[in-house]
Write a protein that binds this DNA or RNA. Structure first.
Lengths: 345, 345
DNA sequence: TCTTAGCACTCAACCCTGACGAGTGCTAAA
DNA sequence: TTTAGCACTCGTCAGGGTTGAGTGCTAAGA
């Protein structure tokens, strides 16, 4: 992290105008068009300032006789010091709210809806992770006979997540017996996480071999669920990238889509974010991924129930309207948090 | 459907060669390069034949001095009469088989894996629908208390599909009572579909108000599941389109992605297919969708258990290697059918 | 000292042109 | 019926000139 170069009032105004113009049009912006907006100074003055801003690395000139484009550092300065965030317009609220009007019971379904809503609201690719530490506590379990050698375990976890897995039966057991086992397990298992369940045999101590064996399988499965939960990332809205002129280059588009379709990449990306303050904007190469050098991430956490934190955000062009996207991401995050919190209660 | 124009031996050979060449290179093929492969005739002779094939509409000339490209009808003739399907190469089998080596218990998860496997094997976008009439028969149900006003219904359906839904409680009921209700329902509900469950009150007749009310909610929910099941279409492999030269045009790509990301479109597409004979290739405009005029569909049914049929296939460029793709689609279909059948048993 | 009008300069984009070549259709001879 | 030969078409590519947007520099003015 290098310190930002300090800018005087006028340079700030000009940089801000460049970002605004470029965000709107996608075309490198020249001194003449800036002079129209910033009528206080002539194009020549602005030209001098642009030269300085280029020297200190906030602007880039694609070629000698072209206008200026903000560099990653330029966007960074804009985002940190110049940006006036815009309220989420009523039209967007009206677009988002219906998604959260009628909600499914399961947390995962809610997250999926959130991804769709955010992709639409921000006109970019949306990313949503499950609330951390979600899904490890048992709310209820059930056993359904499949055949002599197998039973289906149905786990209802906190957040109304339902998980299923075939378990092996060491001896043929009928449904009545399975139901009895399930009932007796339900009496002790509620609210426990994987390690809690694994300690059950010690504390209760009187299980038959079959129950013992089933418990071991349940613990193993819960551990798997746990791991899956941590890497679960939903996304939506790849189509929103297609109409951006900067992705007219298929090469570039391909790289981005490859990252988005590869869940591991996304996980790495999100875990690289510094969300201690609940909100982060990563611009261009700041993400550390070469494929996303022309993309920015706007991420925020959402709170679900008591301090469960998930991440939600968008991936779009570096040229995105940061002043609009940030508030919209947080708006949806707030809605998601509320909805997931309700499901977790 | 118009009758195909009959072709003599030589025209057939030439058409076949044109399709093979164009599929391989993506470049319009001229008489000279054909004369190399078909050494029996000179380029002039081939030129004459190409002219005839163009006249009857099997080939198209992008411009006067360009080579020939197969038309939709040309591909149709090729697929119907000329194509020699290739065996699925061992390398591809080795790529596909691991996907089906370790399978999850739920049908939906299996289908998701199948989509990934097929996308890879056919280097195109894969499409998979759930087996028809799946998911309507109850295998097991359970009720979990959420709060005084709500209980969570967990339905295990045939195929080990698990569905959940919050139900409203007309009066506060504790978990013990809910479990008792679930147990009594389980005794009669197994194997029934939505309409069967809806007729339960008549045949049993002795339900308390609460049970009566819950049953009504269960029926309603099952009907919803039913409808969802019919429209469920998974897809994967959009990235595979990106390296095809014909999709270098972003416009085109955008149209295709829009169709693929819109589930209703896909549903319409697949229901338009005529799968009475279990396998269909739809070439270009045959699909009836303008957006997919440069795409072909290769679809087949798979059998899961006793006569349950789902659809699986790929969407790719019209220039795809039909002789390879058909067998690969059927190979994966067979694997899926077996896997889903096992899950349904 | 700061601002700005003016001007020369740069360079991508565009259009025109001509050379090239891939590929055709036609014709006439085998 | 086949095929060699040839004129012709037309897309592609490279070169060259023009245009115009935008710059940097300079010198005059505030």
């Amino acid at each position: 992290m290098q310190h930002p170069v300090p800018l005087d009032q006028r340079k700030q105004q000009i940089l801000k105008a460049v970002v605004a113009d470029y965000t709107r049009t996608g075309v490198p912006v020249g001194s003449a068009s800036l002079a129209v907006h910033l009528a206080t100074w002539s194009s020549a003055t602005i030209r001098n300032e642009l030269a300085t801003l280029s020297e200190v690395g906030y602007l880039i000139q694609p070629h000698t006789s072209a206008g200026r484009v903000p560099s990653d550092r330029g966007y960074r300065y804009y985002v940190d010091f110049l940006m006036d965030e815009e309220d989420v317009p009523p039209a967007v609220r009206r677009q988002v709210d219906p998604f959260f009007a009628v909600l499914p019971t399961g947390v995962e379904d809610i997250l999926e809806i959130a991804a769709t809503a955010l992709a639409q609201a921000a006109d970019a690719v949306s990313l949503v992770t499950a609330p951390r530490a979600l899904g490890v506590r048992v709310k209820h379990l059930d056993l359904v006979k499949l055949n002599d050698a197998q039973a289906l375990l149905v786990l209802v976890l906190e957040g109304n997540l339902v998980r299923q897995q075939a378990l092996n039966l060491t001896s043929p057991t009928d449904q009545t017996a399975l139901s009895a086992i399930a009932a007796s397990l339900n009496a002790v298992v509620v609210g426990l996480d994987a390690s809690g369940v694994s300690r059950l045999p010690e504390s209760v101590g009187t299980y038959a071999a079959l129950e013992h064996d089933l418990l071991a399988q349940i613990v193993a499965f819960m551990t798997v669920c746990d791991a899956q939960q941590d890497t679960l990332i939903l996304h939506d809205g790849v189509r929103n990238l297609l109409h951006q002129p900067e992705f007219g280059d298929v090469e570039l588009l391909q790289q981005v889509i490859e990252v988005v379709e590869e869940e591991r990449m996304l996980a790495a990306l999100i875990s690289a974010a510094d969300l201690d303050h609940g909100f982060q904007i990563m611009i261009g190469r700041e993400s550390g991924m070469a494929e996303l050098s022309r993309c920015s991430l706007v991420l925020t956490t959402y709170r679900a129930g008591a301090e469960r934190r998930g991440t939600i955000g968008v991936l779009g062009s570096t040229r995105m309207a940061y002043a609009q996207v940030g508030p919209r991401v947080r708006y949806v995050a707030q809605r998601v948090g509320r909805a997931v919190g309700r499901a977790l209660s």
